[in-house]
Computed example of a mutant assay.
Amino acid sequence: MHPDVSADLADLDTTLKTVEAVVDVEELQTRIRELEDQAASPDLWDNQEHAQHVTSQLAYAQGEMRRLTALRQRLDDLPIMYELAEAEEGDAASDALAEADAERIALREDIELLEVRTLLSGEYDQREALVNIRSGAGGIDAADWAEMLMRMYVRWAEKHDYKVEVYDISYAEEAGIKSATFAVKAPYMYGTLSVEQGTHRLVRISPFDNQGRRQTSFAEVEVLPVVETTDHIEIPDTELRVDVFRSSGPGGQSVNTTDSAVRLTHLPTGIVVSCQNEKSQLQNKAAALRVLQAKLLARKKQEERAELDALKSDSGSSWGNQMRSYVLHPYQMVKDLRTELEVNNPSTVLDGNIDRFIESGIRWRMRDTSGE
């Protein structure tokens, strides 16, 4: 085997070992077993939200394990491919060597794609992604372009076995869509897709122009982390002040001769709730707790909405700015304007093959954040 090939295989092995260490294969295997046990529970679907979370997490973990296992197997097979090529003669040797070299190049790309996942360490990177697409300038062509973009992301998710849940689509009058909102429901989707945020530009011969003129269209992509909320708020006893008093009726008259009414004060927020309609102090306290939990949940949702708005503002540097151009005429090219990555086959990109753009975008963001 040529020394350069041996050195390259050793480098690939080092990179893959780093990925395996960061992912923690043993921990991943343990996680899969735990999720499989939960998924096998006969009462799993008694709580549909929990069941969907378990099955989604399990599918993602199994997919990660399959990818890691397949990469390791391919890397182990490569030296054998080179040995077989050396054993051949003439044209057969050249063909076998070319096949081994092609596999080595393809394997490096696939390992580097998985390596990118280890760079996702932002506060929200592990969340699922909420993607909003809006048609911009360009009329009917822009609406059609927005629909093409949505198809591109959905196809990308399907290729990776990521579940997509469409929340809303607003169709344009003639063709295409005005806007669409959908979630990509797998871990790390926000960290992965957040680099896709910005304005996407399409240049092509308009299929809606009977004179066959070239048209430039714009569509905006916004990516947000899915907010994690619960329907139940735990309130530690240390955060509550409980006061009891006698229930009062119209005009302040005492309705009850015992101190059965309850007033709860949530010390961290100052929210005060009282209940005096039930017959016993215990019932009044339970009812007051339910009201307090509802108030705290509403407050939490307001804070999360404000947090998302802040995230939206923080990432506004790319929102409204062109980040990628897709040219179908007069030449064929897709170019990322931040990373300078170019691909000369737009049809494959629009069919969902955007991993190279995502990878280069994440690396670009890491360099930009670290100030390199």
Rank of each mutant, 00 (worst) to 15 (best):
V131S: 03
E83H: 15
I177G: 01
V226T: 10
T229A: 15
N353K: 13
W364P: 00
V5G: 00
L224T: 04
V5L: 10
I205E: 09
V334H: 02
K300W: 15
E304T: 14
T339C: 03
L16F: 01
M81E: 13
L68M: 13
D209I: 11
E112R: 12
P268G: 05
S248I: 06
K285S: 08
I235T: 00
A287W: 00
D237A: 15
I105G: 08
V334S: 01
T192A: 08
L240H: 03
H2Q: 10
T269Y: 03
V244Q: 12
P250S: 10
P42L: 04
L149F: 09
S347D: 14
D13S: 15
C275Q: 14
E372R: 02
R365C: 04
T339G: 00
A61Y: 07
R33N: 11
L202Y: 04
T258S: 09
A183R: 12
Y153L: 12
D13R: 10
T55F: 04
G138M: 06
S41R: 07
A219W: 07
E115F: 13
E88K: 00
E228F: 08
L267I: 11
D237S: 07
T14M: 06
P268F: 06
A298R: 09
N277Y: 11
S179K: 04
M333K: 09
R134G: 02
A98H: 09
E158L: 08
V291K: 11
D8R: 12
Q73W: 14
T265F: 05
P3R: 08
R67K: 11
L292R: 01
N47L: 07
D309S: 14
A61N: 06
S194L: 06
G249K: 09
I362C: 01
E173P: 04
A180S: 15
G361D: 00
E49I: 06
E158I: 07
L311F: 14
A7G: 09
L308I: 12
E26I: 06
P79F: 07
A180E: 05
P187Y: 00
G251N: 03
